[in-house]
Design a protein around this nucleic acid. Sequence first.
DNA 1: ATAGAGAGACCTGGCTAGTG
DNA 2: CACTAGCCAGGTCTCTCTAT
Length: 325
Amino acid sequence: MKTSELLEQISNGNRINSKEDIALKNDFKKIFYGNGYMAWRKKQETGSGGSFNVERDLLLKSYVQERAAQVASEFVEDALQDVYELALQHLNARLYGVVDNFAAWKHDSGFPLKDSALELYNKVCDILENGDEIRKHRIILILGVYAEGSLSQARKSFAGSGGELVLEALLQSRGMKKNIDYCTQFTSEGSDTDIVIPKATKPEEVKAYIAVQISSNDRTRLTTSELVPGQRNYFVSFNGCSASSKTTDDIGDEIIAKYVKEDILYVVTEKERIRAINTSLKRLEAEKNKSKQDRNKILFGETRLKWLDEKSITFEDFIEQVSRL
DNA sequence: ATAGAGAGACCTGGCTAGTG
DNA sequence: CACTAGCCAGGTCTCTCTAT
């Protein structure tokens, strides 16, 4: 059966089998992703009001210029929140406008659909325009699923670059200059390092390696390929910030043990550092007070505390250290 | 200059299994 | 039931390279 007919089935409340479902999904992917509808909507944004990138640059520039005196932990928390809210503003518009703009897409000069994906698209438009309420609802639900599929990925992407940019803004607000005092995407063995200090072209010139993450849990392990054993390594995490979905507690024991061994410094906000120390202290005490103690858990708990105590630093400490390198 | 392909990095958000 | 640890798919974004 054609995918447009499958959609007809669904709109009428009928079921389709799994093979048909795969075919349908394939065409919906062509409609929404890659060079599809979502990309077209994104292009519309650049028209009035300026693009997301322009607005974000302006926002960060204002932080650099106006907040040089703000406590670093608060600086990054505020900046990240603002940057993330700006991103959500753009992305939400892409989601909430999907029903209103979907049919207009076909008038775009670069409209790419053909064959069965095109037929499916036309079927969607037809139901949106002529279908009765219940059929429309069923179709709109599906549009939402694909739109959100795109947006959830865009959020990750924006968040990732946002974190790096916020840290750059912090460095700049303290008078450090890009491509002099620091540089980004330094290429060495392993993957590129987000930021190194100072500007370097060869590993011998690097005084500190810095990896940045917004929400760090098990993915923390990925940062080790950006850092270099034996060198001064900073792992900057926005864990605990309101724009982050994770906290220090989400970093597993084994990963922390590795970080202790490799002497990697953990940079977080002051608030999160204090909270994390308290939490792990309580957890360790709770384990020790059990009648049947888990020896491993106690050891890991002690390692975690030691790491937080000796190897975690606040953004204030971080700035102080790197500006003196 | 511009378009397109390819590669690498980004991380959210939800799931399963295990423990108490 | 409540909570935690561990796990990971996959579109977007950006950059680089190549072709026109």
